[in-house]
Amino acid sequence: MEIAFTKADKLKDHPEDSALGFGTCFTDYMFNMDYSPEKGWHNARIEPYGPIQMDPSTMVLHYGQSIFEGLKAYKTKSGTIQLFRPNDNLQRLNRSGRMLCMPELDQKMVLKALKELVKIEKDWIPSEPGTSLYIRPTIIATDPYVGLRSSHTYRFFIILSPVGAYYPEGFDPVKIWVTTDHVRAVRGGVGTAKTAGNYAASLFATELAHKEGYTQVLWLDGVELKYIEEVGSMNIFFMIGDELVTPELNRSILAGVTRDSVIQLAKSWGMKVVERKISIDEIYEAHDNGTLKEVFGSGTAAVISPVGMIKFKGREISIADGEVGPVAAKLFNELMAIQYGSSEDPFGWTVPVI
């Protein structure tokens, strides 16, 4: 499929690397492509970034048929640009699409389009340590119809956003809050899909956590409210004794790309990594008997996010005396080194763009 290109009349000013936050600044161009039953995916184009015009009855606005991904492009010290595990993100996008009754994308074609877009926008990629170009591929339902069914037409788009370092003031642990009054997802639902509704379901409890002084919510399973699932925007890991434990994928937990990277990297170091059901009570017992060494989250935005405190049913526990643990620090440093090309990539995770 050929990709058309429309040049912008005027380009935006680029922000200083030091002024970058997350998700507030967007580049000059975006990729768009449409789907209809008659034509399949068609009209692939790179054009100036701008609003998407839609009818007030457009189905995504009423029934939430929307999926997305998040990945990054990195500028190496030598000036080359590379992506981190883009094929895994595109595979997951298609898995999410199947759950939301959306047509599959040709991954090779989309990767080609993504690379082309990043090449055009290469000057937007920041150079300061920890900065990157965030990439958001998205599919939305576009039928103008108010009625509960899957849409017949769709829009696929990719937008880019230069982002600052996630830890501009230091790699510090966060505080997380466990709720038993709210759930994010249940087995048999769409918890394992990266769909907008999952994040909408997390907003209320997250606001409550913020009011209590906590960064994110640690979600329990939606049936027994007993077993740990994930944090709001991350998967979660526990260092218990000499084992690195993470909740098993149970059809309600998102299969994180960074989660899988942590597992593969830790195993390559000879660490014992276990994917299994783990209850919040077990975590508190491990803390009380001294075997809980570290807790940290994993995700695209933060890479690794150490946890220094957990609160559950009114009881707050401190992890590693509120300090960053050695496993979290080592994983963070090594993953960042691979992503920015300063360390060897033995897994074949990085994909060159330029």
Rank of each mutant, 00 (worst) to 15 (best):
D9E: 14
L11S: 09
L11Q: 10
K12R: 15
E16R: 15
T24H: 10
F26Y: 15
Y29P: 01
M33S: 07
D34H: 09
S36G: 13
E38T: 10
K39Q: 03
N43Q: 09
I46Y: 04
I46Q: 03
P48R: 08
L61R: 03
L61I: 03
H62W: 04
Q65W: 05
F68N: 02
E69F: 13
L71W: 11
T76G: 13
T76H: 15
D88W: 13
Q91M: 15
N94T: 10
R95Q: 05
S96L: 10
R98I: 12
L100Y: 12
M109P: 01
V110L: 01
A113C: 03
E116K: 12
I139F: 03
V146E: 00
H152K: 15
V163S: 08
P173L: 02
I176Y: 04
R184H: 09
G188K: 05
V190R: 05
A193C: 10
N198S: 09
L203F: 11
L203G: 15
W219I: 06
E230T: 09
E230L: 14
F237G: 02
F238R: 00
M239I: 14
P247R: 01
R251P: 00
S252P: 00
A255R: 07
G256D: 02
V257P: 00
W269L: 03
V273T: 08
V274L: 03
Y284A: 11
V303W: 06
S305A: 13
K311V: 12
G314Q: 14
I317Y: 01
I317E: 05
A320I: 11
G322L: 14
P326Q: 13
S342A: 08
E344L: 13
F347T: 13
P352D: 04
